[in-house]
């Protein structure tokens, strides 16, 4: 670790940015109406799922296009427990998390032998299978597999009435707190021993193994943790959207959205998935009403924007910004000190 004035300044900048970001996130529901607040809450839970997927895909190099299934599992766990068993929302959260993690670990086991595209395909199978299973076995109140939570939706408590009087605000803040806690945990996880093990396994499995890393444990844990994040995200989604459903196309698209958020934001960066989630959600929302007479064209706009973003920023928004900063700093250093030529 570097020390001295440079490091202290970096720490200051980082602290100031964190406070600013948290401030903005807290202020959003005060400024905007229910529609936007719900949209931002959506971005927050997608960020949670993307953080988890980033651990698996970004840091560990295992591509999954099936995390929509874990997400759906979390949503259904919360939905069914709240609607049919009368649980409060927060009590369902750990259940959703554990359930998703257990299934995630089970799916992670084949991943020990199956790699790359083949693994992506197994996870695709998961995304394809989940809706079929739900539609066959879940019979919620009303007889369909759609779980509606309007009747049991949580009300904002008394003590929060000063800042979250409206239900949408309350749901946003609950999502924000859960997302914040999970973000902090994730940052610690990837900066620590486990995070370095993940990267080592991604870069070279055989080499990592010779360094004494237990491949099986690392890969299965990565799968389980990322599934846990997706499960919690699903649980939050049930809270925000007040329903859980699982159409074949929706589950697949959800999985794709997570992956898009990770790559757009920047793989293997801590902030990337969060930035990516907001960009994806807002982009989708804006392209949806950009062309008034042709609503069928809005996915085209979204798709083309994705492609263009990949041209300009192949390493994602966070990666791109990092490159930009490095270049600016390089310029400044080159200007001030002639003896430290860039190597």
């Amino acid at each position: 670790m570097k020390s001295g004035p440079g490091a202290r300044r970096a720490l200051l900048i980082r602290g100031a940015t964190t406070i600013a970001v948290v401030g903005v996130l807290c202020w959003l529901p005060q400024q905007y109406g229910p529609t936007e607040t719900t949209l931002y809450a959506e971005a927050l839970f997608i960020a949670v799922a993307a953080m988890g997927l980033n651990l698996l895909t970004g840091y560990n190099g295992q591509v999954s296009i099936g995390h929509g299934a874990f997400f759906g599992l979390g949503a259904y766990a919360t939905g069914i427990l709240m609607l049919d068993h009368g649980w409060p929302f927060l009590a369902t959260l750990p259940v959703a998390a554990v359930l998703a993690a257990v299934v995630g670990a089970a799916v992670g086991f084949p991943a020990l032998r199956v790699k790359g595209l083949y693994l992506a395909l197994i996870t695709l199978g998961l995304a394809a299978l989940f809706p079929a299973l739900v539609n066959k076995f879940v019979k919620s109140t009303g007889g369909t597999s759609l779980v509606q939570l309007y009747r049991v939706r949580p009300k904002p408590p008394e003590w929060a009435s000063s800042f979250a009087a409206a239900e949408d605000q309350w749901r946003y803040y609950v999502t924000l707190v859960v997302a914040g806690v999970l973000f902090a945990l994730m940052v610690n996880l990837v900066r620590g021993r486990f995070g370095r093990a993940l990267v080592a396994v991604r870069e070279h499995e055989a080499a990592a193994e010779t360094l004494g890393i237990n491949l099986a444990r690392v890969k299965v844990s990565a799968f389980a943790i990322s599934a846990l994040y997706a499960g919690v995200a699903g649980s939050l989604a049930a809270l925000v959207r007040l329903q859980a459903n699982a159409g074949q196309i929706e589950v697949f698209q959800q999985s794709i959205i997570f992956l898009v958020a990770v790559v757009i934001g920047g793989t293997a960066t801590t902030l990337g998935p969060v930035v990516g989630a907001f960009v994806v959600v807002l982009l989708q929302d804006h392209t949806a009403d950009l062309i008034k007479d042709e609503p069928t064209l809005s996915p085209a706009l979204f798709g083309i924007t994705l492609i263009l973003l990949m041209y300009v920023l192949p390493d994602g928004l966070v990666g791109g910004c990092r490159r930009l900063f490095r270049r600016i700093r390089g310029r400044m250093h080159a200007g001030s000190a002639t003896d430290s030529a860039p190597t």
């Binding site: 996915p299 083309i304 492609i307 990949m310």
Partner: peptide
């Protein structure tokens, strides 16, 4: 992969 996903969305809606 993301580019082909973008194509997926674009071609379908076009």
């Amino acid at each position: 992969v993301i580019v082909t996903i973008g194509m997926f969305l674009a071609i379908n809606s076009i």
